[in-house]
């Protein structure tokens, strides 16, 4: 007879408990809110899928979702090529390596709300360094609290400043792991530097690049703190990204039902797009 050791369950229990507390229970609470109307004194009324339907038809949600995709698309289109370029330009050995690495890591070490506050002051017309330089010295009107285009540029530039380093560091790690022998082979073959990049460096960076793009997608799609501190979603609703809108509904209006429904849709989109990215980018390798 086969002996079964039931003690093994005790080793799984802590993980189960932990995951239940930090993921499953909160998620189920949100699911619970999303199908009910909530009043004070813990009064709940069953609503079914009404909130979802309402949300998917709401122009406000469509606009926020559009802004969100625009933002994420823009920062990916800038940060990925820029990160690769900087990683390629960084020294591979010698005295400057640690210096560059520390400089690169610095923006990522600053707390997110501090970054928002920093850029807020930095861009204030008349006071901030950038705001003063643009308006007073160069004579270019620049006020991100009033001009939606300026607000967008500022939010995007801030994110590029904050997060390009992540792409740089991951790509750099991929680059330094390429043995010298590959470059020697390329020199003997007489390959141009574009061919070295295309046929040696890019394929060798592929795995880390997949991770970098995934991380940047998820982080930028869920971004909240920095733009909230910087613009508060304004001027008007021009920089109200999904998460900012979500918090407005949940805490500003205290519409827990619609907010919960929005959270779930938001979560599903992030999950779906991440999965798509990952499958597309690893499919080629699996072949």
């Amino acid at each position: 007879m086969k002996t079964v050791n039931q003690k093994a369950w005790f080793f799984v229990l802590p993980v189960l408990a932990l995951v239940a507390f930090n993921a499953l229970i909160p998620l189920m609470t949100v699911v619970n809110y999303s199908v009910q109307e909530t009043f004070g004194d813990n009064l709940f009324f069953w609503q079914g899928l009404d909130w979802f339907e309402q949300l998917l038809r709401s122009d406000r949600f469509h606009a926020a979702l559009g802004r969100q995709f625009l933002f994420t698309g823009m920062i990916l289109a800038i940060e990925v090529p820029l990160g690769i370029a900087i990683a390629l330009a960084m020294p591979r050995k010698g005295f400057w390596v640690p210096v560059f690495l520390v400089i690169m890591a610095l923006p990522m070490l600053i707390p997110w709300n501090v970054i928002g506050a920093m850029w807020n002051i930095f861009t204030l017309p008349g006071i901030g360094l950038l705001g003063y330089l643009m308006n007073e010295t160069l004579g270019i009107p620049y006020n991100m609290t009033q001009d939606p285009v300026a607000a967008w540029i500022t939010v995007v530039v801030m994110d590029v400043w904050h997060w390009t380093s992540l792409v740089v560091l991951l790509c750099y790690a991929g680059l330094v792991s390429i043995p010298d022998a590959y470059y020697q082979a390329a020199r003997i073959d007489g390959a141009s530097s574009w061919k070295v990049f295309r046929y040696i460096q890019l394929p060798k960076m592929r795995t880390v690049l997949t991770i970098a793009i995934l991380l940047r997608f998820m982080d930028s799609f869920n971004i909240y703190t920095e733009p909230f501190v910087l613009t508060g979603g304004g001027p008007g609703n021009s920089t109200t990204l999904l998460s900012i809108d979500l918090v407005k509904i949940a805490l500003g209006q205290f519409d827990l039902g619609p907010a919960a429904a929005m959270s779930l849709i938001y979560f599903a989109i992030t999950l779906l797009v991440s999965w798509l990215f990952y499958t597309l980018m690893t499919r080629e390798q699996a072949k």
């Binding site: 043995p179 022998a181 590959y182 020697q184 082979a185 020199r187 003997i188 073959d189 007489g190 046929y199 040696i200 394929p203 060798k204 592929r206």
Partner: peptide, 21 residues
């Protein structure tokens, strides 16, 4: 002369091939 112009081949101790070709 650069390695390319010397018309030579080199085989290394570890296997160097273009990975995705």
């Amino acid at each position: 002369l650069s390695p390319q112009k010397r018309n030579i081949s080199l085989v290394h101790q570890f296997f160097v091939n273009y990975p995705h070709m």
